[in-house]
Structures are given as C-alpha cells and as structure tokens.
C-alpha cells in the first residue's frame, strides 16, 4: 500500500512538471508581443527592453522554464507586472473561493448522485427509476451557465431568497455559505445526473455478481448487502470520475464566477490572459494543474484503499 502511494505521488509530480512545460511553451507561442501589449504602441525600445529584462523574457525559453520551476519550489511565482505584488499572494486570495466552490459542488452532487443511483438500481425498471433516468439525463444535458442564469433569475431576482452576486463577507461564514448556494447548485446539477447514472450502472453490475448471491444466500440483512457488500465495489468507478471531475469543475467554475461575479481562480486567469500578465497566468495555471493532479491522485489512492486488489497491481 505504501509503495503504491509513493509511486502514485511521484507520477503526480512528473505529470505536473510535464504539463507546466507544455503550457509554458503554448502560452509563449500565443501571437502578440506581451511587452508591446502592456506598454502600448508608443513605448520606446529602451522601455520595452527594460520590461523584457524585468520579466525575464530576454532569456531563452528553456532557461525561463528552469527559472520558473526553481522559483516555484520555493513558493515564489514572480510578481504581477502591473501592481508588483507577489503572484503567490494574488492567487492565494482567489484560491480559497474557487476551492470552496468546487468542493461544495462536488460534495452535494456526489452525495445526492450516489443515493439516487443506489435507489434507481434497487428500484430497477419501476416508474421511479424511469423518472430518475429522464431527470438525470436532462440534468446532464443542461449546460451549467444556463442553470446559473435561470437560478439567478428565479431565486435571487424573482423570489429574492438568495444573494445574486459576490462571495459574501469574508469574516462572516454564514454569509459566505449563503453566497455559495446558487453557484454550487448551478455547476453541481449536471454532476448529480452523471453520478446517479454511473452508480446505477455499476450497482446493477455488481448486484448480479456471484459474491452478492453468496451474501444473500447467507441471509445477510438487505442493508448490509447493498451498502457494505455491493456499494463498496460499485463506488470505485465513481471515485475515479469525481477525481477527474474536480478538474472539469475548475473550468465550470469560470462560468459561475463570471455569472455570479465571484472572485476566483477562473476569473483571475481570464483577466490575466487578456492583459498578457504572464506571471499571474503561469501561477494560476500551475495551481489548476496541481489541483487536478492532486484530486486524481487522491481518487486513485482512495480506490486502492477501498479495493485491496488495486494496490498490488502496480
């Protein structure tokens, strides 16, 4: 088990390094000279050269990448070109909002999705199973920005129950939670449908396996058979999907952050790309990559803990 975790973690580091190198190259091949964009058309060549030097853009690309990594390890992601503030603290401010949002979204959708999936599997081919199937597919098919806009219109503007914009008072936890409801609802809704379908399918598969017949043949209580004997296995693919889903939620969060005017990583990246604010872009991208890799690695490790056969395969 420990060996498996070490292998998974080293693989994770490797993925991060590879992804960042790739992104570095990609960002630098976007057309448009960042220095001209920032300084405007009337900048003198001397001014451009000095800014280039400050940003390290006069160095060859491999050297820039190497600098980036050595600094990143010590927690230094450079400084914002415009405000001169350290990128680490800019991102740090935004990160908690985004993490809170994706964590809230995936939590409620996973809990509800798993429950509905089990329910459908147990009530297979009944009316309630069929209704849930239609609902799930509709949830999956509805884009999150549509849900965002309509839930905003209905719950905030029409009913006035929930706040429309912002992330709430940073000192007031309750206020923050209230502000989290609509965005988390909007981007989590399609995941409810997705996870419910997935859990239903794997539950049905597991319930037809021989070991479940054994458990039932020993007269084990129904609840044990479903939750201890079947769900524990049926949940494995769902955990993998949730791990990958955290990454997709990062991009879904961009919509929600724009529609609900929430601060967050997604909004920061978009703003920084339009202004060619390279250090901030790179810092945010590095962080998104880390979140993605950490969540997939974590889901793999959880799977290995739940299924003793996985840890032995690698």
């Amino acid at each position: 088990m420990l060996g498996y975790i070490i292998k998974r973690l080293s693989l994770a580091v490797l993925i991060i390094v590879f992804a960042i190198t790739l992104l570095f190259v990609m960002i630098h091949s976007i057309p448009g000279d960042p220095v001209s964009t920032m300084l405007g058309p009337r900048a003198t060549p001397e001014l451009k050269a000095s800014l280039e030097e400050r940003m390290g853009l006069n160095e060859p690309l491999p050297v820039q990448i190497a600098y980036f990594f050595t600094n990143a390890i010590t927690g230094n992601l450079g400084t914002d070109v415009f405000t001169n503030r350290p990128v680490t603290s800019i991102i740090g401010e935004q990160l908690s909002y985004t993490l809170m949002l994706i964590f809230a979204s995936i939590s409620w959708s996973a809990l509800l999705g798993i429950f509905l999936g089990c329910y459908s599997a147990i009530k297979r081919n009944t009316i309630s199973d069929k209704i849930l199937a239609v609902l799930s597919v509709s949830f999956i098919a509805t884009p999150s920005f549509v849900v965002s806009l309509y839930s905003l219109l209905f719950f905030s503007v029409y009913l006035g129950w929930l706040p429309a914009i912002g992330a709430g008072d940073s000192d007031d936890l309750w206020d923050q939670l209230i502000h989290l409801v609509l965005p988390a609802f909007s981007i989590g809704l399609s995941w409810v449908g997705y996870i419910a379908r997935l859990v239903r399918a794997s539950m049905l598969e597991i319930m037809s396996e021989n070991h479940i017949r054994t458990a039932r043949a020993f007269g084990l209580p129904r609840r044990w058979v479903i939750y201890r004997y079947a769900l524990r296995l049926a949940i494995l693919p769902t955990i993998t999907v949730i791990g990958v889903g955290m990454g997709f939620l990062l991009s879904a969060a961009v919509f929600a952050e724009i529609v609900f005017s929430r601060p967050g990583l997604g909004k920061l990246v978009i703003d920084s790309i339009t202004t060619r604010n390279y250090p901030v872009v790179m810092g945010s991208v590095l962080l998104s990559t880390i979140i993605f890799v950490v969540s997939t690695t974590l889901s793999d490790i959880i799977n290995a803990m739940l299924d003793p056969r996985i840890g032995r395969q690698l």
């Binding site: 396996e209 021989n210 070991h211 479940i212 017949r213 054994t214 458990a215 043949a217 201890r228 004997y229 524990r232 296995l233 739940l306 299924d307 003793p308 056969r309």
Partner: peptide, 13 residues
C-alpha cells in the same frame, strides 16, 4: 456452497 470459488467471496472485504 457455490460452484465458482474464485467469485464466491466479496473481493473488497
């Protein structure tokens, strides 16, 4: 006692 011993027990317990 079922036929296939390889699948008769729960693999994760």
């Amino acid at each position: 006692i079922f036929q296939d011993p390889m699948q008769t027990h729960n693999p994760v317990l």
